[in-house]
Nucleic acid binder design. Structure first.
Lengths: 300, 300
DNA sequence: CAACGCCATGCCCAATCTCCATCGCACGTT
DNA sequence: AACGTGCGATGGAGATTGGGCATGGCGTTG
């Protein structure tokens, strides 16, 4: 990949002698010497001073050496990262996440990841926020996404993004005028609830849980697509993290407004990884990619 | 210098097609394609996805591309710096400096520089601190060293080092016990003065000038070597910047102690370069080297 | 179905790289 | 003063690599 001349030059600079460098690299001194003479001709300047005892770098040589060493070291790093990729080409990754991320963020991230690792299989399951840590800790899943909170020592949040729960509404809804909405603001409006195969989660914020349990949903569905359409058709509003509707918000089809509760607005979702158990190769790659995608969310 | 494969790979990634890249680089598509296949074999992984319309980088390819682009860009920079060196191989540099730097720092720095630029000639002249800026500004000299102070807009201090004037004494001198010495402390001791071909400089600190003018030197010499020896032989003490005696201090032959005057201890010497007029190639190289050597002083 | 774009491959020649042997030079030893 | 030993530089033969040309296989497009 990199020209042999680079290695030759580096070794010669290191050992201060063409012959010693040649011995170290198992090539003949003449071959090595020619490469260095070629380099000097190409750059139009001497790279070494020829002293009776051997070769010493000139100023230009020092400059070039820095570049060459840097290049070769960096290449080693790149190669080992590529080897990691190769090891991760096949395998299985299990992901346990709170449902808001299953709506939009995770399916899309996985789809993009799949393009690079077509032979990897996935399990992508929703779970209650409080259950995710246990599922990752005991190895049922490789990675988890849940609201950030205290973790057992066997787990660690690899990366976090702010993820307040707010109100998702049609783009012409009156609540859109407010920058933040209170529980009282939303009470009058019809409400759409998601009902998955899971028991309803013990909620992250006690006040919010109490508030929502008092509401009577106009529509309950376990189909996210149905809920999205229902919101667009003005059947009601729903409560989700922004992350579930990034694309629709972007296109102006729905609007999202935060609550006026500091506790809710401080909510963060994090990528949970095992701290002790070494992750499988594909899990490591996927985790790295997810952190990247989360960074993109952050800046958006 | 760098393998052609790097350029081939970069161009192919850029254009998304072997044929287009080959056309842009004036080589045949088959030759270029082979190099890429070789790369993939060497790394043991595909770098491109072959789509009907052309080539798209895989994850491993993205990784490698970063490395390759970085390497080639950096090489361009290195090459141009080497070209600068070559342009500076010959020529002349004029340096005007306060005398303390002529004692030790500048001759040694120039000697090291000369090893890399043997064909450059130098003028190295002492001047009064107050005259240096004018001499550099009007082009009489390319570079200057003087005490830092206000400069005309046509000049600029490229780099500065602290350079308080202090007392140079034999290593077993009683004043050595003090961390800082006062004017009164030194008054009882015999004093050695340097007298160059220059009129005695208008001194940098008014209080110090007054103090020194009251002293009667036991020995006046224009030979620095003579002064150094005289100090070692305990004939007296002298007033210099540390920079004039770095080597002797290091070897323990003489000691140096600062005065207790904040004004004197705040003194700095700086490398003065023209801000408008572009410096000659050798002057630019020498200036860069001098800044490097000054940095070494700083940390010493 | 034909035409066109793409990358992959076989073949041949030219350029490059490597090796071995040798040279000239500067030093230290005898 | 002569010699031996280390150094880099160089010449020539042979192996390796890189390049160009022609062609093949494949998918898309008209």
């Amino acid at each position: 990949m990199h020209a042999a001349a680079l290695t030759y030059f580096r070794e010669t600079a290191k050992r201060g002698s063409v012959r010693r460098a040649a011995a170290a690299l198992n090539v003949s001194a003449s071959a090595l010497n020619r490469q260095i003479l070629n380099l000097e001709e190409e750059l139009g300047t001497a790279l070494f001073d020829r002293l009776p005892g051997g070769m010493r770098l000139t100023a230009a040589g020092e400059l070039l050496l820095q570049h060459v060493v840097g290049t070769l070291v960096e290449f080693d790093r790149v190669r080992s990262r590529i080897d990691d990729l190769r090891a991760a080409r096949t395998g299985h990754v299990g992901l346990s996440a709170v449902d808001s991320l299953l709506v939009d963020f995770l399916p899309r991230a996985l789809d993009r990841f799949r393009a690079d690792f077509p032979a990897v299989t996935y399990a992508l399951d929703a779970a209650n926020p409080a259950d995710v840590p246990r599922l990752v800790a005991d190895g049922t899943y490789d990675l988890g996404f849940t609201f950030v909170g205290p973790t057992p020592p066997s787990l660690r949040f690899e990366h976090e993004v702010p993820a307040p729960i707010g109100v998702v509404m049609p783009s012409d809804h009156p609540l859109r005028q407010k920058r933040e909405v209170s529980f009282d603001d939303v009470a009058p409006y019809p409400f759409l609830a998601q009902a998955g195969p899971l028991p309803r989660s013990a909620d992250v914020d006690a006040g919010f849980a109490r508030f929502r349990s008092g509401l009577r949903p106009r529509l309950v569905s376990n189909s996210i697509q149905a809920l999205k359409t229902a919101i667009r058709l003005n059947m009601g509003i729903a409560f989700f993290t922004r992350l579930g509707f990034l694309e629709e918000i972007e296109r102006g089809e729905v609007a999202w407004r935060p609550f006026d509760s500091p506790a809710i607005n401080a909510l963060r979702i994090g990528l949970l990884v095992p701290a002790n158990r070494p992750p499988t190769a594909p899990a490591r790659q996927l985790a790295a990619r997810l952190v990247e995608e989360m960074g993109r969310l952050d800046s958006a």
